[in-house]
């Protein structure tokens, strides 16, 4: 667990981060959202002490991060940033091996780990290991950046606008990849972004920051249904909040038992927003959601979706 206690960072007379306290659950995907200058990056950089707090402290599993030397602390925490920050003079394999090398792992172990990570991120080791960063596409560079951050198997991964430099189509794919990786390695991820869409897409928990202050910290549903103040509701926007709410629920959770004869199938993992779009497109009233192994398919009706989207 990561605990931020009354964290403050002051530059001159300005509080860039002001008295922020929050607890981040192990294995969660927490997203900090805010506009530029909101203090979100500074907050993130105080966790691995790239920025030293003016006041307050950070505890990781109950231990004050200030008790460790900065570099030692950072070797145990993954870190990925916008524009990937890959070292242009080192190969993909050398880049990924950065922290294991710093930690003095044996060569064979490093090589195996590099191959494992490249495969996990759908990059063929034989093809990519010896390439230089400038020979990769933007999406590939970003994936290598994530692989590098995960190289030493950290429990915690800090990400600062990691998808900021990607074009929209690649970005969604990259987000899904990171989410899959997070589930597979059960990493605690703290991610900073200015993009509310991204926050809803990725976050188990969302923290909204503005003017250095934490405006609201809660689940996506909380933010959507119970925004703490005007700023948060303006940031989320009201025009499509029903659809946003639907996008947080899956077909599996919403489906009911019932007649599924002749209905088109929909994946259990699909969210209700996508399911609704599919129903409208096909002009159907209901779809069949396949069940767990051995159980019969269940029915997801238009009426049910509309009921779940009714927020207030």
């Amino acid at each position: 667990m990561i605990e931020l206690e009354n964290l403050t960072k002051r530059y001159g007379d300005v509080d860039v981060v002001s008295d922020v306290s929050m607890q981040i659950q192990p294995g969660s995907f927490t997203v900090v959202v805010g506009q530029s200058g909101s203090g979100k990056s500074t907050l993130l950089r105080m966790v691995n002490r790239l920025v030293e707090p003016t006041a307050g402290r950070v505890l990781i599993d109950g231990r004050d991060v200030a008790s460790l030397p900065g570099p030692t602390l950072r070797r145990g925490i993954g870190y990925a940033i916008q524009g990937h920050g890959l070292f242009p003079h080192r190969t993909v394999a050398q880049n990924i091996a950065t922290v294991p090398t710093l930690l003095g792992w044996p060569k064979a172990k490093i090589r195996a780990r590099v191959a494992e990570l490249l495969e996990a991120l759908q990059l063929d080791p034989g093809q990519f290991a010896a390439k230089y960063p400038d020979e990769l596409s933007g999406g590939e560079q970003q994936r290598v950046g994530v692989a590098r951050a995960l190289a030493a198997g950290p429990n915690i991964l800090l990400m600062d606008e990691p998808f900021g430099a990607l074009d929209p189509i690649i970005r969604v794919k990259a987000q899904d990849d990171v989410k899959a990786i997070q589930r597979r390695f059960e990493t605690t991820i703290l991610l900073v972004t200015h993009d509310m869409e991204e926050a809803f897409h990725l976050g188990d928990a969302i923290a909204v920051m503005s003017g250095g202050k934490l405006q609201q910290y809660g689940s996506p549903e909380d933010l959507l249904l119970r925004p703490a103040n005007d700023y948060v509701s303006r940031l989320i926007g009201s025009s499509d909040r029903a659809l946003r709410a639907l996008s947080l629920k899956t077909a599996r959770d919403a489906a009911e038992s019932g007649d599924t004869d002749g209905l088109f199938p929909i994946a259990p993992d699909a969210n209700l927003r996508d399911a609704l779009a599919e129903l409208i497109w096909r002009g159907a009233d209901a779809a069949a959601v396949s069940g767990e192994a051995g159980t019969p398919p269940r029915r997801l009706s238009l009426r049910r979706i509309l009921a779940l989207g009714r927020g207030a």
Partner: peptide, 18 residues
């Protein structure tokens, strides 16, 4: 030298000298 490379290096725990 790209600032992002230096930031990433610091973030991964390289010392100033490294």
């Amino acid at each position: 030298v790209p600032a992002t490379a230096v930031d990433a290096a610091a973030g991964m725990g390289m010392t100033r000298r490294q």
